[in-house]
């Protein structure tokens, strides 16, 4: 199995559309039966930046992320990820996805989990050691995943997604239920990754995390309320905080 080398990753960047965005979404619709989960979403996610996907629960954040990583069927629209149609097989080497509920094997140790996924994405033991250090799970390396605390478990889930050196990381509420200290250390990791050129899309319903993102996308009722940097959004809504901006913008578009 091939390791994703940096040159292969650069290939993805070269092949992006003229706009040069990591994710391009045009008029995306997702409908379950008669219920519209996403209604005509058009959005861009820039390369090498942290984009925060904000919105109340039920806004469609998870569905949008699942479309981007290629596990969610959609009704209409066009979604391109790193220049390819979402879900294209070659993207499986380049996109890391961390679900809201940690998806690790509870009856395996942290290392056994990592070893299995490392074999699938084609990386070796040194990479496993590096990742364990990165997510601060060295002391828990030989502990059963089922016995980890909530925070440790979500870091284990993140570790698996980081194994293959993904060019795009899609993280669904990665800091939910974590203590403030851990939250800060995870965000530091995210910024380090972005500094290395990784594009991150992070969903959260905690508004104070918005300030840690480079770009923001406000989602409500399956629609993009607004998108831009935090400063832009606050100015547009004449609000002091992102939370106020969200409320103002939500009120303006009933």
């Amino acid at each position: 199995m091939n390791t994703v080398t940096n040159s292969a990753v650069d290939d993805f960047k070269d092949s992006a559309g003229p706009s040069g965005d990591a994710i391009e979404i045009d008029e995306l619709m997702v409908r379950f039966g008669s219920r519209d989960i996403l209604r005509s979403i058009t959005a861009r996610v820039a390369f090498g930046r942290i984009t925060g996907l904000l919105g109340p629960s039920g806004a469609g954040k998870t569905t949008l992320m699942r479309v981007i990583v290629g596990v969610q069927r959609f009704t209409a629209g066009r979604v391109r990820v790193l220049g390819r149609p979402a879900g294209a097989p070659e993207l499986r080497h380049a996109v890391g996805y961390v679900t809201q509920a940690p998806s690790v094997y509870a009856d395996l140790t942290v290392t056994e989990n990592l070893r299995y996924f490392a074999r699938l994405v084609g990386v070796d033991q040194t990479r496993i050691d590096d990742i364990l250090t990165l997510v601060d799970l060295r002391t828990q390396a030989h502990q059963l995943a089922g016995t980890l605390s909530g925070g440790e478990l979500s870091r284990a889930s993140l570790a698996i997604a980081l194994l293959g050196k993904p060019k795009l990381l899609v993280l669904d509420e990665p800091t939910v239920g974590l203590d403030p200290l851990l939250r800060r250390s995870l965000w530091r990791t995210f910024h380090d990754l972005a500094a290395d050129g990784v594009t991150l899309l992070v969903s959260t319903h905690v508004m104070d995390e918005a300030d840690r993102c480079d770009d923001l996308m406000l989602l409500r009722d399956g629609q993009v309320l607004a998108a831009g940097t935090g400063v832009e959004l606050r100015e547009r809504a004449h609000a002091a905080t992102i939370e106020d901006a969200f409320l103002t913008l939500a009120g303006a578009t009933p």
């Binding site: 294209a88 080497h93 059963l144």
Partner: peptide, 30 residues
């Protein structure tokens, strides 16, 4: 690049073997 992409869809003995080892490891504990 495309050969790599194609390989990801094609049956791959190493991936099946890794999965088998993982399943046995899970059972071993139970």
């Amino acid at each position: 690049r495309f050969r790599t992409a194609w390989r990801s869809e094609r049956p791959h003995a190493a991936a099946a073997m890794a999965t088998a080892i993982r399943v046995v490891n899970q059972l071993r504990r139970d």
